[in-house]
Design a binder for these strands. Structure first.
Length: 202
DNA sequence: CAAACGATTTTCT
DNA sequence: GAAAATCGTTTGG
């Protein structure tokens, strides 16, 4: 439908892309099950110069390989041996930039999402965090490196407008180890949205 | 080859 | 509020 084209992702301004992603729909169709949600929180990881980025100093390993490819694909990795975090690769090939999607507001397949999360009431813990949204949408590391043009994962523009004044920028979560780069205002979220993550240290 | 650790979330005290 | 859960990736010997 209105799936965002590769050209949306290959641009160099990761901050602009991070802000524009707010209000877009993240859609997955996995094993015949369609689920989706509106992106309400993102975090930019700005390439070789960003201490918080897995590709800091161009660290190119089997895990980070997708980040060195052309934008428009997924970079997914396992964190704490438990959760799969979903990132959107941006910029051109050999420029390892990526955006972590930290929270979504559920839209389609909410029943499926609740089943995957083993929950029986709809509340922010369903998909209001980077680990939980991946679980709710069925995203795992096996999709790392896959295209965001489908068939499994895509991002759509559904004409949802987010006013500039409703986009808050703040410091990123869980990156204290990045020293001075931990202070960069690279986290973006929609003001007053109840699905924005409420992890520790916020 | 062994060991430490993490862009988190849940559970227990 | 503190600590556990849990494992692939990375780093060190």
């Amino acid at each position: 439908m209105n799936t965002l084209p590769v050209s949306f992702y290959t641009r160099k301004d990761i901050i602009a892309i991070s802000r524009e992603l707010l209000g877009k729909a993240l859609v997955t169709e996995i094993e015949g099950q369609k689920t989706s949600g509106i992106i309400v929180e993102t975090e930019a990881y700005a390439g070789p110069a960003d201490r918080a980025c897995h590709a800091y100093q161009r660290r190119h390993t089997a895990r980070t390989a997708p980040m060195f490819r052309e934008g428009g694909i997924a970079y997914i990795y396992l964190i704490y041996g438990i959760y799969h975090l979903f990132n959107i690769v941006t910029n051109e090939a050999d420029e390892p930039f990526a955006i972590l999607v930290r929270a979504i507001e559920p839209v389609e397949g909410i029943d499926i999402m609740m089943h995957r999360r083993k929950m029986n009431v709809v509340k922010p813990q369903l998909c209001g965090g980077p680990g939980t949204l991946s679980m709710a949408l069925g995203i795992t590391t096996r999709f790392s490196g896959e295209s965001l043009q489908g068939p499994h994962i895509r991002i759509e523009d559904r004409d949802i407008r987010v006013a500039k004044k409703d986009i808050i920028s703040a410091t990123r979560v869980g990156v204290a180890y990045a020293q001075e780069d931990a202070l960069l205002p690279y986290r973006f979220y929609i003001r007053d949205n109840p699905w924005v993550s409420k992890a520790k240290g916020l």
